[in-house]
Design a protein around this nucleic acid. Structure first.
Lengths: 195, 195
DNA sequence: ATTGATATATGATTCAAATCATATGCGGTG
DNA sequence: CACCGCATATGATTTGAATCATATATCAAT
């Protein structure tokens, strides 16, 4: 969905294709923001170095997504971007993009809408993380993300889903199994289906 | 900070003043979105009715903030707004605002920037909620919110802060006390100061 | 001033998720 | 093919935050 919005209003600007090897850094936390990126194919992990020296997963950008959008208005990145798998990036010069948006209200409105969606999604995850029970947490997450057929396509490893909703992967695996055994959930390949 | 941005680009539109008594609803979850609101004075709580019948605090809007920004692009509210204290609201007709933004790129850019900041703030809270240790969670939160003097003005009750970072208020009180006793934190009136 | 509601505070106990450990499966790579 | 790294999976144990209970302080309203 983000894909269409972005492709729509970025067509007039000539982006630069940029291949990225697995494990390669696109930018580092603290780097000056000179470009705006759009992920064509692959997967990009955004991590932030915490005070205690740890690393926190902030977001996993998937094919068709832009990422680190907030950096459009800040001079330096507040997180690092690392390719989880071999990826293809579209690169736009930040200054060009800002000028372009200023001249094309429809484009800016599209971006605004995308940001609004982001805010809502983040609030949803935030709310989910306040649910104490792992079981309820998992069920609530699936309910929010599933389609009309009550199916959820997993665009990332279960491990990352666990992190996203604030559970350890061990607990997440166990809860999935329990739900499956209780006939409340069905699993096949990359899908979860609520019953 | 949000205050200045909004006041700047909403000046040309004539808003409608709207007094709100404590406990009064501004809108209900599911209502059609016809207006965009800006909180002049007071405090507004945004709550969402969860599936299990519970209520989740999504956000506490303070004086000078706009809220439920995401609703600008959706037909109905996904949360309810209730005045925590007697408040004064500025009301803009949604359709008017959208037209206005389309005609004034600078205004839209301002809004875009505000949304970007929202996204970053939400990601920060998200990250904080993944910290298991209550002590580290509290410390990390304060570190992120404090000013240059390492002081944090509490614009909401400790209870709400606890909820914001995903702790029960009991645990939060206890951790504050422990940090105080360990001389890592100082408390006076509505301030927390890291030592 | 009295009342009522809510925030703050703290103790005792429980329990469920984190942690630690270990094993298997699986996809990519030389 | 064989190896490696990582995801998935599951068991045993621990622990610390949630829960339950109760008390006091504070603030708002009448």
């Amino acid at each position: 969905m983000n894909k269409h919005i972005l492709e729509q209003f970025l067509t007039d600007l000539k982006p630069l294709g940029l291949p990225l090897m697995k494990g390669e850094h696109l930018f580092f936390q603290g780097d000056q923001v000179e470009n705006f990126y759009y992920l064509k194919t692959g997967k990009i992990k955004l991590i932030r170095n915490t005070i205690e020296g740890g690393q926190a997963l902030i977001h996993v950008a998937l094919a068709g997504e832009s990422f680190a959008e907030a950096s459009l208005f800040s001079s330096e990145y507040h997180c690092s971007a690392i390719a989880v798998s071999t990826s293809e990036i579209m690169r736009y010069k930040k200054s060009d993009l800002l000028v372009y948006l200023e001249q094309k209200p429809a484009a800016m409105k599209g971006l605004l809408k995308m940001f609004a969606q982001q805010v809502r999604d983040l609030r949803t995850v935030n709310e989910i993380k306040n649910i104490r029970s792992a079981k309820e947490r998992v069920l609530t997450f699936i309910s929010h993300e599933m389609n009309e057929d009550k199916e959820l396509y997993l665009s990332m490893p279960l491990k990352d889903v666990a992190y996203k909703i604030g559970l350890t992967h061990e607990t997440f695996y166990r809860e999935l199994k329990k739900l499956e055994q209780a006939r409340k959930l069905q699993r096949r390949d990359g899908f979860l289906k609520l019953l």
